[in-house]
Design a protein around this nucleic acid. Sequence first.
RNA 1: GCGAGAGUGGCGGAAUUGGUAGACGCGCGGGACUUAGGAUCCCGUGCCGCAAGGCGUGUGGGUUCGAGUCCCACCUUUCGCACCA
Length: 835
Amino acid sequence: MTASVPPFHPGSPEEPLGYDPSAVEARWRQRWVDRGTHSVDLTNGARPFYALMMFPYPSAEGLHVGNLFAFTGCDIYARFQRLQGHTVFEPLGYDAFGIHSENFALKVGKHPMELIPSNIRNFRRQLDRAGLMVDWGRSVDTTDASYYKWTQWVFLQLYKQGLAYKKAGAVNWCPSCKTVLANEQVIAGACERCGTMVEQRFLEQWFFKISDYAPRLLTNLDTLDWSATTIQAQRNWIGRSEGAKLRFRVLDPLTDAGSSAVAVTTEMRTAGPEIEVFTTRPDTIFGATYLVLAPEHPLVDTLTTPMQSGVVAEYRARAAKQDLVTRKTNKEKTGEFTGSYAVNPATGEMIPIWIADYVLMEYGTGAIMAVPGHDERDFEFATVFELPIIRVVAGEGQGARTPFDGAAYTGDGVLVNSGAFDGVSVGEGIAKITAWLASKQAGEAVTNYRLHDWCISRQRYWGPPIPIIYCDACGTVPVPEDQLPVVLPNIPDFRPDDSGVSPLARHEEWYRVPCPQCGQKARRETDVSDTFLDSAWYFLRYPSVGRDDVAFDPAVTKKWLPVTTYIGGNEHAVLHLLYSRFITMVLHDAGMLDFEEPFTRFRAHGLIIRDGAKMSKSKGNVVNPDEYIEQWGADAFRTYLMFLGPFEEGGDFRDGGISGVKRFLDRLWATVRDADPAASADPEVQRKLHATIKKVGEDVPSLSYNTAIAAMMEYMNVLRKGERQPARAEVEPLVQLVAPFAPHIAEELWEMMGHGTSVFASRWPAYDPALLESDTIELVVQVGGKTRGKVRVAKDVSQDAALAAAKADSAIGKFITGEPKKVILVPGRLLNVVV
RNA sequence: GCGAGAGUGGCGGAAUUGGUAGACGCGCGGGACUUAGGAUCCCGUGCCGCAAGGCGUGUGGGUUCGAGUCCCACCUUUCGCACCA
């Protein structure tokens, strides 16, 4: 915690008599616990409202302002809903497994099992201090066996449905650290910790078949009340694209090897295999002059001719050695010819088959038909290797022979050099050519998704062991549900080694177990699961915390789920939210949930920045919430965070700004203290009060916290204008409006005004629409579109009367020269006189 | 490159269906109370100008009685995805 001390002025700011935030806040923290204010009756609570926030990773650094910003925003929303008469369930827990904790533990030389509990204690202290309405009786800690028992159970449900399977997948491997790395840990092809160049390894991994759910995950998005940016991100990630799968017949490599002069005709019968490609542009098939397979494509061995086998093997080895990130970033085209040819089903011509790393095994079929005339990447490749480029689409002003000007033409147009399809538009051509090729058994229309299966294996220590046992006789056997949890053993040597498998694989005493089916010697799966699995179902657990016999109780789940409102960061727009939706759908399909979308409403909050940059230790601009809360109180800090800017966009943290919010709370305190209990409300003040109740009541549910606070400040200025003495009736509702933002002081003031129960047991004040308007208004007068002044007139003034009033006003009248050409009256707003 | 968003005072940010641009707060200036003020309270504060007035929402056009808001072109910038065929 260096360089994070904000430049406070020495000495505490002076507070109005009696207002000591730390004393007030301590008192109410205790009362809330004593009175059980935040523990919810899940069985009988009326009008259930599940307010969810994204649970934090309990780091050793402690709570980040970003966390507090998100939690406060959620808490305000939840407290507001409570004042609306809902029974609000606001749980919070800890997402404490994963590579972050593990790496940190390795760095400081402590064991995560010792580190995490102390981090959690510190988090809990900070969270309590912030005044959140959290029901701590129902918290979760993903690293606790009572929780991950059910995470393992979730895995088994997927396994049962055939949605969990094992296959070899590519991972990043650091040969120096001897460990698997996540893509984010690879910086420019090197390991982020030691700088060694990272390689690719193929390891057997467990996957979840989320790709089966791609169409549903996509179409359901239309039914969700979510932030538009989040929906968009999911759409892009799922990446639906329509096109065709086309089959290219391969010429027999043995027959044709080395005889490039052979005349190939469509009549030539060959016994070779077929290559399937995916394309979104089947209309351009007449321009497909070669095929490209991913280096990892299973057909490469069969296709490679003896003459080419040396260079191909070398190229494949190089591609395999390269890490995944660099391969996808490096755009220079490389590749090798396999020596084989295929037949273009449209032209009947012989085209060469290449391999190149710009074709990815994980997308489509791992093979493409290259149309260099109309695809930029293929154009680059064809240029490098001098392959033929044919025009098959002509845009405006182009013809069949228009040369390419150093680039592919990817625009719209009509087909040319395409036999019977010449003159057909691109759009029509896609459908017609697909149908034509389908009639020749050479392909069919398909929809492809970018989303690929979710790899959940981690060759690491700090996670829930995957509940699988391998038996020589019975094969892969799931751990029976009644034998869960598979407890993660406390081992001192949890550092990964060069074996490429989890540290647990070094512990024979742990992984040697009898087969649950036959009793013979067997071994446990030694990989642990991805942290995203822990968080993909935690919201199902909260209401059922304490139940050791089920993951989630059907009755309580039916009452409380799906989540009413989820508020969280858009950094989880894709993975966490998508995985949660997937797991929910799977459990729904298994008949365990009666809904298939877990989060009815989701809102993404913005990011807090400071000095124009994201807060980070390396930039030295991190704010320590403890110091601010100590200095200003949690109420002021909460309100200030919300006042920085629009909640959904984030804000710029400036040290000086909090004083304005604190002053507002001080004035609120003084106003209650000085209020005259007997006086009746001043009509003008009351009008403003009702306008404020309306405004705040509209702004809070739309998360416009900054403008809600501004409105309350504005009201305070009216209330105390010229040091007037306030009437109690004028300030009492304001205390209720402030309550969601600054709950401690609101409780204290509510009590000071003689209420025996919590302000949160009161109901949100109502406003009287009749009080909002007065009989006269200030009408803005423009002359020729320029504002010249304003006149006070009756609310429903006629145009003529308004014009007369404007002329009568000397400051305005002098601009009205001659007879007006046109007069526009916007009732209640303005008058524009055109001269 | 693709997708989504954002450009408004010294600063963070407000602005209903197109209808007083700059709410609210910070900062700054003046005053009151004070031994004192970095506390509190009051008043002021977009820019130019003594004033009348003029000019102002990234740039250039357009629509309109009237544009921060709508349309066209462009510039800058943030975030996400990125050789996705």
